[in-house]
Amino acid sequence: MTTLNFSQLDNLFRNDDFPSIENDTRGIRFLKLRSMSRNETMREFCHLHNIDINHLQVRQYFSHLFNFEYITDEQINNFIIQKYNQEREIRRLNEESLVDQLSRLQHFDWGGSFGNSLEKNIVNNYVKRIQSFDRINEEIEGSLLSSLRGYTLNSWYNHWTSILIEDLFKDHTNVLPTVGLVKKIDFFINNIPFDLKVTYFPEQLLAQKLQARGYGNELTRLKRVCRQLNIFIPNDLKDKQLKLHLYNKVSEDPRDEARLFITDLKHHKREIISEAEENPEELKVWFYENQGEARFDASNRFFLVLTDEADLTNSWKLKRNIVFLREKINEHLNNIILDIERLNTEFYWAKNQRTYNCKSDILFIKQTENI
């Protein structure tokens, strides 16, 4: 193992080189202090342990504590747990009410915005394309308002469900939380830092796997069965919207041909997801290599993959099913054995043509059909 100074470790952190940090004798100490590096938190910790920092500038607090040899890892851990419990108690009092509010969202629809980039959508599809004052006002009151509402509601839902799910992990005795919101680290498991990513099985990869199985294109198959059953196919929807629309229509059709089609499609998707669960390396690498460029990093990640096997399009609802999630997450953490070899992940980022190494874990949580 190496023994690096503060500046060297800080540089490694900024360059997403977590393996080198974890291989250092004081690397985990650096990351734990980094997770509590807000100024007021640092001042509170120093006051608690009678550490004089009056002569220091604010930006020197972190490095000073890191190099303060009389502070032990146990003291750092105990303070982090204490601070987390204080913050958690406030959230716990409001948890039932928050879950109730989140349960009022009936449809998870971005409202036509492209991805999560509302500003890019507005500039490219309204500002730069429309010259008429009257028409752009009509669009603001119509499709743009719908886009804004969908973007805001979905972002609101994702934000608060992510906090709820993070708390489910941090509440467990095998997990050391962080203090406040810290980029790249949400918690430590067996002294390994992880950034939690709550997600679903990616549609793009699912489509590729269906093709590889010889199933073909899902939308093409849906159109074919609709023609066979004389189900109307509209021509005013984009492919993604059309696929969901036709899937719902076929799902609701009582005829045997429709039922067999949906049963067969679900069977293929379940098998693909089960295969990924048994051999998750490909999926973990896929998540890293297909992350958004604006938020790219190569930090250690814990992927929580949520799946409603009755209807994949409803998987988003699992994020607010706290009782179910708590049971499954605790079951996993109660029996967790972090095999370092299994966690080691290598991926290639095409944008800068660089290979990264990190650690990642994955937990699939599935809700099966009611029988």
Rank of each mutant, 00 (worst) to 15 (best):
K209N: 08
V175Y: 04
F232N: 14
K184Y: 08
N235C: 04
T199F: 06
L229W: 08
F194S: 04
D167H: 13
I233N: 08
E218V: 00
T161R: 00
L206A: 08
E278D: 14
V182Y: 12
F169S: 02
A276H: 13
D239N: 14
P254F: 11
L283V: 07
K249E: 13
T173I: 14
I189W: 02
A276S: 15
N174D: 11
R255M: 07
F169Q: 05
K209Q: 15
R270S: 10
D239W: 04
P234A: 08
R224H: 14
D253Y: 10
R221K: 12
K197D: 09
T220E: 15
N230R: 10
L219G: 00
K266D: 12
N190H: 13
S251H: 09
K269P: 00
P280L: 04
L246V: 02
I165S: 01
K223H: 07
S251Y: 09
N248A: 13
N217W: 06
L244K: 15
F188W: 06
R259P: 02
Q228L: 11
E271C: 08
L222H: 02
V182F: 09
K223C: 11
E257V: 11
H268R: 01
A258R: 10
S251F: 07
R259N: 14
V182I: 12
I262H: 01
N235W: 03
G216L: 00
K269F: 08
W160K: 11
H172C: 05
L265D: 05
E218M: 03
K266Y: 12
K266H: 10
H172A: 05
E166W: 07
V198D: 11
L205H: 03
D195H: 02
L283Q: 01
P177F: 03
K269L: 12
N248S: 13
E281M: 09
T173G: 05
K209M: 12
F232L: 13
I163V: 15
L242Q: 08
N174H: 13
N248V: 04
L246Y: 01
N248T: 06
N217H: 09
D253K: 01
F194P: 00
Q208A: 00
K249M: 09
V175D: 07
R255C: 09
I165N: 00
P177Y: 10
